[in-house]
C-alpha cells in the first residue's frame, strides 16, 4: 500500500523525466549516430567525424573561453554582493534583493534586445556620448559585448546560490571564531569562504553551462561576428537542416560540459553539489 502511494506521488515526476529529458536525449543520440543513404538508415560516426574541423574546434574553444571569462567575472562581482546581502548589518536587504531579482522577471530575449538598443551604433548611449562631444563608439559585434551579455544575464545565478550558502552559516559559528581570536579577515578565509564553497560551485555551474551553450547573446550582441558553438548547433537545426550533425555537436558539447563539471566538483566532497 505504501509502495503504491509512493508510486502515485512519483508518477508525474517520472513522466516528466521520461518525456522531456530521456526521450529528447534518445532522439538526439538517434540523429547523431545515424546517417541516411537515400532510404537506408545506418549506424555511423560520420556526424562526429565531420565535427573534427579546425574552424569548428576553434568555435568550441571560443565558447569555453568566453563562458569561462564570464563565469570568473560573475564570481568576483557576485561574491561580494552575496556577502553584503547575507550580512545582517545591511538594512535595505529586501530592496537590494529585488533589484537583483527584478531583471529575472523580464523575458530573457527582451532584456537582451534592450541592450541592443542601448549599445548599437546609433543607440541611446552613443547618442548621449556624441552629444557630450565624446564621439561614438563601437560596443557591439565583438567578444567583449558577448561576455558582457553573459555576465548581465547570468549574474543572479551566481549571486543566489552563494547568498543562500552564506545565509546558512550560523551566526554562532562566526561568534565562536571571533571569540577564539580571529579578526574579520581570518573569519572570512577560514570560516565563511570554505563554508560557502558549495554555493560557489553551484553558482559556477549555473553560469558556465548556459554560457557555453548560448546562441541568443552571441547573435544579438555579437552581431554575427562572434560565432559560438550554440550558434552552429542552431544553424544545423534551422537553416542547414542537418539534424544529425547538430545532434552530434550537441553531444560533444554535453560531454565537454560534463568533463568541466567533473573537474570543478573534484574540489568538494559535498554530496549536494556533486549531484549537479
Amino acid at each position: 500500500m505504501k509502495k503504491l502511494g509512493k508510486a502515485v506521488v512519483l508518477f508525474p515526476f517520472v513522466l516528466w523525466m521520461v518525456l522531456l529529458i530521456l526521450v529528447p536525449l534518445a532522439l538526439i543520440a538517434y540523429y547523431a549516430f545515424t546517417k541516411s543513404d537515400g532510404n537506408i538508415l545506418q549506424f555511423s560516426f560520420e556526424n562526429f567525424k565531420s565535427f573534427i574541423r579546425p574552424d569548428l574546434l576553434l568555435v568550441l574553444a571560443r565558447s569555453l573561453k568566453l563562458s569561462l571569462i564570464a563565469t570568473a567575472i560573475c564570481l568576483f562581482a557576485g561574491y561580494p554582493v552575496a556577502m553584503i546581502l547575507a550580512g545582517n548589518t545591511f538594512k535595505k536587504k529586501a530592496l537590494l534583493l529585488v533589484l537583483f531579482i527584478a531583471p529575472m522577471w523580464m523575458n530573457f530575449l527582451l532584456r537582451t534586445y534592450a541592450w541592443l538598443t542601448l549599445l548599437e551604433g546609433t543607440g541611446v548611449i552613443n547618442t548621449i556620448l556624441d552629444a557630450l562631444g565624446l564621439g561614438t563608439h563601437t560596443f557591439l559585434g565583438n567578444e567583449n559585448a558577448v561576455v558582457f551579455g553573459m555576465v548581465y544575464n547570468l549574474l543572479p545565478y551566481m549571486i543566489f546560490p552563494i547568498y543562500s550558502s552564506i545565509c546558512k552559516i550560523s551566526p554562532n559559528i562566526l561568534e565562536a571564531a571571533e571569540d577564539l581570536g580571529s579578526n574579520a579577515y581570518t573569519r572570512f578565509t577560514r570560516i565563511i569562504l570554505p563554508l560557502s564553497i558549495p554555493g560557489v560551485l553551484s553558482g559556477i555551474t549555473m553560469v558556465f553551462v548556459p554560457g557555453v551553450t548560448t546562441f541568443v547573446i552571441s547573435q544579438f550582441l555579437g552581431s554575427g561576428n562572434v560565432i559560438l558553438i550554440g550558434d552552429i548547433i542552431e544553424q544545423q537545426f534551422t537553416r542547414a537542416s542537418n539534424w544529425g550533425f547538430g545532434a552530434a555537436i550537441s553531444i560533444v558539447v554535453m560531454i565537454v560540459v560534463f568533463i568541466c563539471m567533473w573537474i570543478i566538483n573534484r574540489f568538494t566532497d559535498e554530496p549536494e553539489v556533486t549531484m549537479l
Partner: peptide, 17 residues
C-alpha cells in the same frame, strides 16, 4: 573587540566549525 579579549566562550548551541 571579542577577538582581542583573553576570554573564551562556550556557547549554548553547538558552535563547532
Amino acid at each position: 573587540p571579542p577577538n582581542k579579549r583573553n576570554f573564551n566562550t562556550v556557547f549554548q548551541k553547538y558552535s563547532l566549525f
